[in-house]
Computed example of a mutant assay.
Amino acid sequence: MRVSGVVRLLSLIFAMVATWIFFRSYMSFSMKTVRLPRWLGSAPKETRVVHTKCSNSKPCPANFFAFKIFSGAANVVGPTLCFEDLVIMSPVKNNVGRGLNIALVNGSTGTMLRHSSFDMYSGDPQPLVKFLKEIPAGALVLVASYDDPGTKMNDELRKLFSDLGSSYAKQLGFRDSWVFLGAQDIKNKSPFEQFLKNNPDTNKYEGWPELLELEGCVPRKTL
């Protein structure tokens, strides 16, 4: 074979190898920089925000009511009572007051029956006694403290709250924090209750313990 023929053959082989290397490098670059994810497959999945009633940490099962109760914060921020996604009492609604804030709910239908606040520092305890004695059968009782729930708390009131399932009503005192959900005709103590004693050594706020938050799912009362 002539020298010129050899040169042409080597040139052809070189061109083919160079083309192959270029093509391979180009495809590798393309796959790394223009990968399908951005267009098709790996786009971030749509984040679904699951709404829960009263903004609880998890939804309630069927035949259960969702609730959330916040006590007041010192004497500055009032309490909030929410039931089945309905805010019954709150500072925004301007229907809370110093002392005890109480809402009654029908335990079968979830319908709000009535609500009120009772001044337990300088008020008369008898309206609260009357309110508690008139709770209809099967009603759920939501309670949140604000500022001072205990100064006017007498033995009669402590027994009425205990009969609703409270474990802490008997020791409730000056500026304690208390949240509670009980029921008329309850057979045992309620599992829905939190309590913090006013203690200068442990209080989060000057003169008051920290606010309490209570959420959960209470079973619907079946007739």
Rank of each mutant, 00 (worst) to 15 (best):
F118C: 04
S177Y: 02
V50T: 08
E210I: 00
L172K: 11
D124Y: 06
V49S: 05
A103I: 05
T151N: 07
W39M: 10
L12M: 04
M27L: 13
L223A: 08
G182Q: 09
S71P: 11
S55C: 03
L12K: 00
I186T: 14
D185W: 04
L196A: 13
M120H: 03
L104F: 06
V218G: 02
P37Q: 05
I88F: 01
N203H: 01
S4I: 12
C82L: 09
A137Y: 03
P149I: 04
S42W: 11
L86K: 08
T111G: 03
Y121H: 06
D119A: 03
N198E: 01
P91N: 11
T33Y: 15
N94R: 14
K187Q: 13
D119R: 12
G97Q: 08
L157F: 12
N188S: 12
L12T: 04
L40G: 07
K68T: 09
L157W: 14
R98E: 11
R2M: 00
K221W: 06
S90Y: 07
D124H: 10
V143G: 07
E193T: 01
K93E: 09
A139M: 06
R35D: 13
M89Y: 02
L40A: 13
P59Y: 04
L10R: 02
G182C: 08
N75H: 12
C60H: 06
Y26I: 11
V179W: 03
K32R: 15
D85K: 05
Q126Y: 11
N75L: 14
F22G: 14
